[in-house]
Amino acid sequence: MTPENAPASRWNDLERPPLNESALRHALLQPGGLWTSLDIVPSTGSTNSDLAARAASLEGEGAVLVAEEQTAGRGRLDRSWTSPARSGLFLSVLLRPGKNVPTERWGWLPLLAGVACATGLARAAGVDMSLKWPNDLLVKVNGEERKTGGILAERAGDDAVVVGIGLNVTLRADELPVPGAGSLALANAISTDRDPLLRAVLRSLEQWYGDWREAGGDPGLSGVQEAYAAGCATLGRPVRAELPGERSVIGEAVAIDGDGRLVLSTEGGGRQAISAGDIVHLRPAG
């Protein structure tokens, strides 16, 4: 039988082996820990959509859903996210911050997840990862900033949030969905083994989320605001904020405020806080 007509097998691409579900459960599902269940599916449209649909039937928080392949992954502004099977990490987690965290602070969850991913992967993959406001994960490929991941947080009922994470791990240059994309492999990561990378992301997320929730969702007391600002590649550079209603604002990104908004210093000395929009990093004049 030739490779072209061979039946589908989890071992067809030995460079991209499947995740080890039993080992991951053993490592991550600990008594008293955040993660309460972990399921891996071969393929699905969107882990966020699937987990949100199950949220009402699940008790507590900490459910993790991972897909080896996403066929209709979603990013911000309804953008699509697709990658070859087993080439990345595609997962969603169910969180219920509880009554001690005011709902107006839940908007910090995607930024917190960005900090968790960047810090966890810096250790496990040995890459210098930075954050583009509000929820892009950047690596450098041949000295150029490239998006290698993204985060999408969505409400699931009155008391729950589903946080989705998509990360390109082993994508080659000819597999990138757009020219500005990247992957851990292209960034010369010291490891692209997805099992330890997934463990690192979830353990880091558990730590940052626990500290944030213990602080009542306060971004300052929990250290999330400081950590995000320290790792944010958007700060200190000229940007264009493309806002709803086909409006745009140009200025220098100078701060992340207590509500997680990007603060721009605009022409004439004014300041504007951006709560939603698309940010374009501009080259400095001259």
Rank of each mutant, 00 (worst) to 15 (best):
116 A>P: 03
215 A>L: 12
180 G>D: 12
215 A>I: 12
188 N>H: 15
162 V>K: 03
188 N>R: 15
214 E>R: 14
173 A>K: 05
211 D>I: 03
109 L>N: 07
157 G>V: 04
198 L>G: 05
152 L>N: 12
127 V>E: 07
211 D>H: 13
167 L>N: 08
113 A>F: 03
121 L>D: 07
188 N>D: 15
161 V>L: 12
185 A>R: 11
201 V>A: 11
192 T>D: 12
144 E>D: 08
102 P>S: 09
117 C>K: 00
166 G>D: 05
206 E>S: 15
110 P>I: 07
198 L>M: 10
207 Q>C: 07
137 L>W: 03
112 L>R: 05
213 R>Q: 14
203 R>I: 02
143 G>E: 10
186 L>M: 13
103 T>G: 08
155 R>T: 10
211 D>S: 15
205 L>S: 13
209 Y>A: 06
128 D>V: 06
132 K>V: 03
108 W>F: 15
142 N>Y: 09
176 L>I: 01
135 N>I: 04
102 P>G: 09
195 D>M: 09
150 G>P: 07
108 W>H: 10
203 R>K: 14
163 V>R: 04
212 W>Y: 13
193 D>P: 04
160 A>S: 14
114 G>E: 02
198 L>Q: 03
115 V>A: 06
143 G>D: 11
124 A>H: 08
157 G>S: 08
197 L>A: 13
177 P>G: 01
144 E>F: 06
187 A>E: 10
196 P>R: 02
177 P>A: 07
172 R>F: 00
202 L>G: 13
160 A>P: 08
212 W>E: 12
148 T>D: 02
124 A>F: 02
213 R>Y: 00
140 K>L: 15
188 N>I: 01
207 Q>I: 03
205 L>P: 13
170 T>H: 01
126 G>P: 13
156 A>N: 05
150 G>Y: 03
194 R>N: 12
156 A>P: 09
101 V>I: 06
209 Y>G: 04
155 R>N: 11
160 A>G: 05
211 D>Y: 08
119 T>F: 01
117 C>E: 11
208 W>R: 13
213 R>P: 03
161 V>Y: 05
122 A>F: 06
196 P>W: 02
108 W>E: 10
215 A>Q: 04
176 L>T: 00
124 A>Y: 02
177 P>I: 01
156 A>S: 13
210 G>I: 04
157 G>W: 07
158 D>W: 01
213 R>K: 12
112 L>Y: 00
195 D>T: 00
120 G>Y: 00
177 P>N: 00
185 A>Y: 04
144 E>R: 15
120 G>T: 00
202 L>R: 04
154 E>Q: 14
186 L>Y: 00
130 S>A: 14
187 A>H: 13
188 N>K: 15
